[in-house]
Design a protein around this nucleic acid. Structure first.
Lengths: 117, 117
DNA sequence: ACAATATTCTACCAAGTGGTTGAATATATG
DNA sequence: CATATATTCAACCACTTGGTAGAATATTGT
């Protein structure tokens, strides 16, 4: 799988590495909320929240619908699916290579043959 | 699931958010390598590589076995398993809530009933 | 003992992050 | 119109990050 397809995921992993932003996604999963409503739920300045939202937007995890002076935020699950898929793909790939290596190095210590006392 | 159990994963997600470090994990999946050998494979100073390795170590993804003047690095897949598990868990959680909401809001536009012309 | 090797540690730099405050902008309401 | 509301933008701060270079440390080989 080409590096180019992977590039977009950097932002997603970076975004979910922050517990505040994960908490925001959980709030967003309950439906659209305004930036201000989101800000009320976090022990942080309005602007602090606004910045986190921008990070989530840049990662493609959240979209914004401006209605008058209100900005409504909506969770976009697609990049999460991608991120989960890739992580699992790589996890399996890395682990398989590692397991294969171990099988090569450890010369098959059979379980059904007892060591002579 | 308590927040405390989640805390360790921040480092893992942050670590894999960097493509250089993901590439390093792929190299490490091929078996133990010295820091220097790893450094030879990346277009970066030895010290740069050493720093990335420390990030991977702090995230628990890599362990170090010092043998004389050589430091051998080994991939530890356990935190990756955890990270993949949690990401999938949350992905499903967020998406399920979102889907439930959509089912609530969109009042079941049946497919098998045609609109009158 | 000496020189080469493998590595970290310290210091530095530019850029990014997480957070703040204050000003600016756009919109709604009296 | 004037004012309150919802939000961004700009500046700033302390800290982290990704990278560099140079000095220090530990080990090996001659």
């Amino acid at each position: 799988m080409p590096r180019s397809q992977q590039a977009g995921l950097d932002g997603v992993y970076a975004a979910i590495a922050d517990p505040t932003r994960r908490a925001m996604l959980t709030v967003l999963a309950g439906g659209e909320v305004k930036v201000g409503t989101l800000a009320d739920r976090f022990p942080m300045s309005f602007n602090g929240v606004s910045k986190h939202v921008k990070v989530l937007e840049r990662a493609g995890l959240v979209t914004r619908r401006v209605h008058g002076r209100e900005h409504w935020l909506r969770l976009k699950p697609a990049p999460l699916r991608e991120a989960a898929r890739w992580l699992e793909y790589y996890r399996a790939f890395w682990e398989t290579r590692l397991d294969a290596l171990e099988r090569l190095l450890v010369p098959r210590a059979r379980h059904d043959r007892r060591v002579r006392p």
